[in-house]
């Protein structure tokens, strides 16, 4: 049963319907809370185990010792050895290499790496894609 112009009523109906196009750059796109966007880094909790570096499929992460370390603790008054202060680590994230799989977030034992919903990362300057988190 051939019917020429089978979609006639569907098409005419769409004259009065709301358009499906999302006006993206002018209207913010909403992504799900589970979306895997830019990876953020918390220096305070990082213990420098480099599990993320080992697991990253794209070799996008570098964990280095921070240039500024917290001052060494003063010796305790009673002469016992001081409690060593946690070393501070920086993370250099190459956003141009990152494939946003969030495997580093899954593997981090201290939850120092956090997946954000930030996805508007395109840039004309390549240097800005190398983020240095302190």
């Amino acid at each position: 049963m051939q019917k020429p112009a089978r979609a006639l009523f569907e098409v005419l109906g769409h004259l009065f319907k709301k358009k499906a196009t999302s006006n993206y750059p002018f209207e913010k796109a909403v992504v799900d809370a589970r979306f895997r966007g830019r990876i953020a880094f918390e220096s305070d909790t990082c213990i420098g185990c480099k599990m993320c570096v080992r697991v990253c499929p794209a070799k996008a992460i570098e964990i280095i010792l921070s240039a500024e370390q917290p001052p060494a603790p003063a010796p305790a008054a009673d002469g016992t050895a001081p409690v060593p202060v946690k070393k501070k680590f920086d993370c250099i994230m190459s956003l141009d290499r990152c494939i946003y799989c969030s495997q580093c977030v899954d593997v981090c034992p201290k939850k120092s790496l956090i997946s954000t919903q930030d996805f508007e990362l395109a840039h004309t300057d390549r240097k800005t894609l190398k983020r240095h988190y302190k």
Partner: peptide, 8 residues
Amino acid sequence: KLGTEEAT
């Protein structure tokens, strides 16, 4: 319906 009936 559209795929099996539309003439073109």
